[in-house]
């Protein structure tokens, strides 16, 4: 059982393990690994009288992947909207490089090196692929009166970057709306990585992808981490998260249910938290009454207390 869960993990981390040979138990050193680029302290967000997010602590360090897990409606999207500048937090603190900030536009976040790949991809369907790739950060040439888009350079760069992502398009002039979801995802990630982000926020990048394309995206996350980027990886798939993550935060109904380093949590525990394990455990006895429901695999409630308590004591 343990073999089954650790083997994909090891495979996923192999190149990075070689790169950082010798730095054993790097997860343990996480809180001391320099200043976090992005830090949230007790941050929250209320829409009118609806509290979508409350008391969230999160730090993103360079060269590490911070996974944020949670079911639908847990507040994952609200969290990244705060960090990416689309919404403002209404409580707690949001620090970038140790300074408290209140971002009012995504442009500000981008200027501070925070790039986001959104769930809905933030592409303009009727515009060509290359225009989408450079949207908001267009390349220009020549001085002002005749300053114009450097179309050749943009097409060339977009093509190179997309090929690096394993996406080969015949015609960069086709509207991006004609691409498949996976292709659009790749364009969006390649775009964020290309524009020199220090922090890359990925909002469920693997949610709409097949197994193989998910692997490509995970490889890209690992590559971004090895280039020293801090990655915030939003997902509801604990398997994907555990392959690349250094730190795991599980959101539940707008609050932090679990915040644990890789060393402190196993895939099982993560999965149980994600799958609503705590609630399932409480329901276990009821479910046991129903014929046909196999409850043997469900954890008991006390199994789930340990990592949460450990992480609370730690932070």
């Amino acid at each position: 059982m343990t073999d089954r869960t650790t083997s994909p993990d090891d495979a996923g981390r192999e190149p990075e393990a070689q790169a950082e040979a010798g730095t054993e138990a790097r997860s343990d050193a996480e809180p001391e690994a320099g200043q976090p680029i992005v830090q949230l302290r007790g941050a929250g967000k209320a829409y009118g009288n609806v509290r979508a997010l409350h008391g969230v602590d999160l730090s993103v360090h360079p060269g590490q992947v911070t996974c944020v897990l949670g079911d639908n409606g847990a507040g994952k999207s609200t969290l990244i909207k705060i960090i990416s500048g689309l919404h403002q937090h209404t409580e707690g603190e949001f620090l970038i490089d140790g300074e408290a900030v209140q971002l009012s536009t995504p442009r500000e976040a981008l200027d501070k090196g925070i790039a986001t790949v959104y769930q809905d991809l933030a592409t303009v369907p009727l515009m060509p692929v290359w225009r989408n790739f450079f949207l908001g950060s267009e390349m220009t040439k020549s001085p002002w009166p005749v300053r114009r888009l450097d179309i050749a350079a943009m097409k060339q760069t977009a093509d190179t970057e997309l090929r690096a992502m394993g996406i080969v398009l015949d015609d960069l002039d086709q509207p991006i709306g004609t691409l498949s979801g996976g292709q659009r995802q790749s364009v969006a990630i390649a775009r964020a990585v290309y524009f020199g982000a220090r922090v890359l926020i990925l909002d469920e990048p693997t949610a709409a992808l097949g197994v193989k394309q998910s692997g490509v995206v995970l490889k890209y996350i690992a590559a971004a981490r090895d280039r020293g980027l801090g990655v915030i990886f939003i997902t509801h798939n604990p398997h994907h998260a555990y392959m690349v993550g250094d730190h795991f935060s599980v959101l539940r109904l707008g609050t932090m249910e679990l915040s644990a380093s890789r060393a402190d949590v196993t895939l099982e525990e993560l999965t149980n938290h994600m799958a609503g394990g705590a609630e399932l455990a409480a329901l276990k006895h009821e479910l046991a009454q129903v014929r046909g429901v196999d409850v043997a695999g469900l954890p008991e409630e006390h199994d789930l207390q340990a990592p949460l308590a450990a992480s609370k004591g730690k932070s």
Binding site: S180, G210, N237, H239
Partner: peptide, 21 residues
């Protein structure tokens, strides 16, 4: 224990078309 992971695994959405060539 392996069964406990199954619901989470099945919550990942269905596969989209294979990577383009």
């Amino acid at each position: 224990m392996t069964q406990a992971t199954a619901p989470a695994a099945s919550s990942s959405p269905p596969a989209s078309p294979a990577a383009p060539k």
